[in-house]
């Protein structure tokens, strides 16, 4: 029973955090996007199309950050076999995949007016597309394992494939990050580093707000999905007990 002690504590904390993260996230995102779309200046080169940045950059950050979360949770589930870890990995993956798709679509729409093309096979764009395929592969494998009875519901020791795939895919994260520095690419280099930013403060403020807001929403949605997965596991267990009692 001690294995379920932690999920119970998690559920108590998650019940409070889920609405908190989601509501604060929606509020911060709304302020960030309002400033970004209406109250911030256009760019000296790109004009108004720079406003796509306020959705594109948060989506790109959550795409990579989400994958890192899937990989970290997969590592914990492989080594410590903690049931919450594989539930977390499966809860993060579809949300990260969605933001990867948003990043690719907004980037493509941004590319046409600025670069003159929707798509090129440069290292940054290609590695981001590979990230989407990694997410989709992970989801397909995790669902197949869950249907076979391993994974989040059953014995996590039975379902290692998805977790191992997630860990192998981590190789792609530094490739995405450094692609614009290692190779000549159409995509420009990083604007924000730990020490400096080449984005004007009037544009950096709404960008950071929407970055923070989207991240909070991401956290809220992941907690929602984890609570739903735990509830499904519980109701399935109750169903099995009832079936045994009446057998």
């Amino acid at each position: 029973m001690h294995r379920f002690a932690n999920p119970a504590r998690f559920l108590r904390i998650a019940r409070v955090l889920t609405p908190l993260l989601t509501l604060v996230g929606v509020a911060v995102t709304a302020v960030g996007l309002w400033i970004g779309l209406f109250a911030s200046p256009p760019d000296y080169q790109q004009g108004e199309s720079v406003r796509i940045m306020y959705v594109h950059v948060p989506a790109a950050w959550l795409a990579s950050g989400g994958y890192f979360g899937v990989a970290l949770a997969s590592a914990v589930s492989l080594v410590w076999r903690h049931p919450l870890a594989s539930i977390a990995a499966r809860a993060i993956a579809p949300v990260g995949a969605l933001f990867t798709a948003i990043c690719l679509v907004t980037g493509s729409l941004w590319g046409k007016p600025t670069w003159g093309t929707y798509w090129v096979w440069d290292a940054r764009l290609t590695s981001m597309l590979v990230l989407l395929f990694l997410y989709l592969g992970y989801l397909a494998l995790a669902n197949a394992e869950d249907e076979r009875g391993g994974g989040s519901g059953g014995d996590p020791g039975q379902a290692k494939g998805a977790a191992i795939l997630a860990l192998v895919g981590v190789v792609n994260l530094p490739i995405i990050k450094f692609s614009v520095e290692w190779w000549h690419t159409l995509h420009q280099g990083p604007s924000i580093t730990l020490t400096k930013s080449t984005i004007d403060p009037a544009m950096l403020l709404p960008l950071l707000l929407s970055l923070g807001g989207f991240t909070l929403i991401f956290g809220g949605v992941v907690l929602m999905r984890m609570r739903a997965a735990l509830a499904r596991t519980r109701s399935a267990a109750r169903g099995r007990r009832l079936a045994e009692a009446y057998a």
Binding site: Y44, W115, G116, L186, P190, S191, T198, I199, D200, A202
Partner: peptide, 16 residues
Amino acid sequence: TVLAKHDEKYMPPEVA
């Protein structure tokens, strides 16, 4: 084909 590449700087026209 000619594609335009832009750099990592973003700023309002009056600052530029």
